[in-house]
Amino acid sequence: MSSTITSVSSTDEGSRATGARRLTGGGPRRRRGLTPRWLPWALFAPALFVLGGLLIYPLYRVVVLSLQDFGLRELVTGETTWVGLDNFRELLSDPLLWKVALPNTVGFAAVNVFLTVALGTLVALLLARVGSWTRGVLTSAIMVAWAMPAVSGTYVWVLLFDPRSGMVMRLLSSLGLVDPETTNWFTERLPFYAIATLNVVHHGFPFVAVTVLAALMTVPREILEAAEIDGAGAWNRFWYIVVPLLKPVFAVVTILSTIWDFKVFTQIYLMPGGSGTNREVLNLGTWSYITAISQNRYGLGAAIAVLLTVLLLVITSVYLRTLFRQQEL
């Protein structure tokens, strides 16, 4: 027996040695079992090709566009007008960016990410607890909220809050809380964004709920029971057991929510005043659209997109750093 073991190990050593020689050595040798160097790349090549075409090329193109002055004329004639960093200079020196668009975007995203993740987690905890039939019904119900297209959903919320005939106004004015003769929530920044928050959180929490639910199912019940026996309350059990185990999932969900909530466009644009007539409620997405696309200045629009991408990259890397700093390997 020992001889077989030795022979096995010697074969391993032999092939490992051959492998080592191959890696450090120079010319081509006969492959014997271990994967050749180019194989991973060859297998990866189709995916890389698709990714390259769909992601890397457009990204490259947007960066190139942001350095040009690109309008309808350039579109039609194919000529290029390079302006270097002028677009960025114009962008960063526009007071509307610093006073309105960025604060609105960052503030809105912060509030929405917090609410979406919190609400989604609460719903996931609920779903984990109920019986499977109830869980099925509830999950289907929240999936309808997620599946609703952003356009239709936004119009429903706009109708609900219509200052003359919306359900909310009728309810509140019949209770005597609001005077319909003087109120239009869409004209002020805070009520406008409050309604948008309702819309976006309602649309976004199902994803968080379902994802966190799936992760919750993987938490071993024995650990939770043991903690319960040891006297840990529900709050402690959640924070000291569930959250650390689910940290990667929370990271993913938070990052995705941040990216989505930063990019919010449809829900803001379709609300009354959001398409550019109310300058106070512009966020980065709508501002870039009315500044650049509506005026056929695609170079400037590309510059705004680059700015948004860089901002999101910075935020995402900060997230990942903080979240995984405490993780021991």
Binding site: G276, T277, N278, E280, Q295, N296
Partner: peptide, 21 residues
């Protein structure tokens, strides 16, 4: 002027007056 309309300059002016901003 198409760009002016795209940027909704006049409508923004009206809205800011009407909402007393």
């Amino acid at each position: 002027y198409g760009a002016v309309q795209g940027k909704k300059t006049v409508s923004a002016m009206l809205q800011s007056i009407l909402s007393e901003d």
